[in-house]
């Protein structure tokens, strides 16, 4: 009897898990976390009636998965945190070319040259620092000075993290392979503490464990929204350098998709005023569509000293970036 009850419970749970398939739907691979984007997706479904089945995971992992899946990928749309993951899929020729009216909504530097993906919200690389131990005036104009003796053991980095690797890839494009390797070796020799990802760096700065760290700009604002006692501050390098690069999160449609129209409708939704305002207010990112205001706590995107590189080239040097990080002894 007990066994039958157990089986019935299990069967009921399984059935409830499998019973969601509306008429119009898309499968979304999201490298952006559920906490940040599910509200936008819910609003989309409510407005358009198109159901979105989401697979959440790390952006780089999902890019790798799409490469494995090839032409038979179940995904219709890939929504990633960074241009390197998007570029990986684009390089493999698995993205559809987006229509110009979509691409035209954002400044051309925030979308793919060939139109395979479009930026949906901007994320700036910054230095997060502890103002109780570092004054802003002593922070250098670019990340290059962090290899100096005075910063020994004080600046946290996340060498295995996707956004750090994208930053290294950008540095290769800007400064060349050799000087990037020299810089990485300098950071290693300077005993820069390494962390698995951005969020522990911000936590470590707030805890007084390190004085500064190379991260994306929005972590600090999110930590502040839950805990006003957080002490850290963001610093934007005044000179154009890889360390002040604005890298968009973005999306593209898989060429194997059978729901391309719905996919386009979805990306269009990400670029409408409602979603762009959500990204500005709730996730503290830069809106991509001109006319939508960024969070007042942030410096305007035009004032950030962004280096002149083509984001579509990042994926091409991603493996090299990982090799250099490994060569420098940071892996």
């Amino acid at each position: 009897m007990r066994r039958i009850t157990l089986l019935a419970v299990v069967a009921a749970i399984v059935a409830s898990g499998c019973s969601s398939s509306g008429d119009a739907h898309i499968t979304l691979y999201s490298g952006r976390s559920e906490d940040l984007v599910q509200p936008v997706i819910d609003a989309f479904t409510k407005d358009t009636g198109i159901n979105v089945v989401v697979k959440y995971a790390d952006s780089a992992d999902l890019a790798g998965t799409i490469l494995e899946e090839g032409a038979a990928s179940p995904a219709d749309v890939f929504f990633a945190q960074d241009p390197a993951s998007l570029g990986t899929v684009a390089l493999a020729g698995l993205f559809e070319t987006l229509p110009n009216e979509l691409l035209g909504k954002v400044p051309s530097r925030f979308s793919d040259d060939a139109g395979h993906w479009v930026g949906t919200s901007g994320r700036a690389r910054v230095v997060v620092y502890d103002p109780t131990s570092v004054s802003e005036a002593t922070l250098p104009p670019t990340e290059d000075a962090f290899v100096d003796e005075q910063w020994k053991g004080r600046v946290g980095i996340a060498p295995t993290n996707g956004s750090f690797l994208a930053f290294v890839a950008a540095k290769i494009l800007i400064d060349g392979e050799e000087s990037t390797l020299t810089w990485l070796k300098g950071m290693a020799a300077n005993n820069s503490p390494t962390y698995p990802k951005n969020s522990p760096i911000v936590a470590a700065v707030n805890a007084g464990e390190i004085d500064a760290g190379l991260v994306n700009h929005y972590y600090l604002l999110r930590a502040l929204s839950e805990n006003p006692d957080v002490v850290g501050l963001n610093y934007f390098f005044p000179e154009p350098t890889a360390g002040s690069l604005v890298m968009p999160a973005g999306a593209g449609i898989l060429s194997s998709s059978e729901h391309k129209d719905e996919g386009r409708t979805f990306i269009e939704w990400l670029l409408n005023d409602e979603s762009q305002t959500y990204f500005a207010d709730e996730t503290f990112e830069y809106p991509m569509v001109p006319g939508v205001a960024a969070n007042p706590a942030l410096p305007p995107i035009d004032t950030i000293a962004t280096p002149d590189i083509n984001l579509s080239d990042l994926a091409g040097v991603l493996d090299l970036a990982t090799d250099l990080v490994a060569d420098a002894g940071l892996l």
Binding site: T160, T322, D323
Partner: peptide, 9 residues
């Protein structure tokens, strides 16, 4: 993990 997530190969 780093080798896995940090490169295409």
């Amino acid at each position: 993990y780093a080798q896995y997530s940090g490169r295409i190969d």
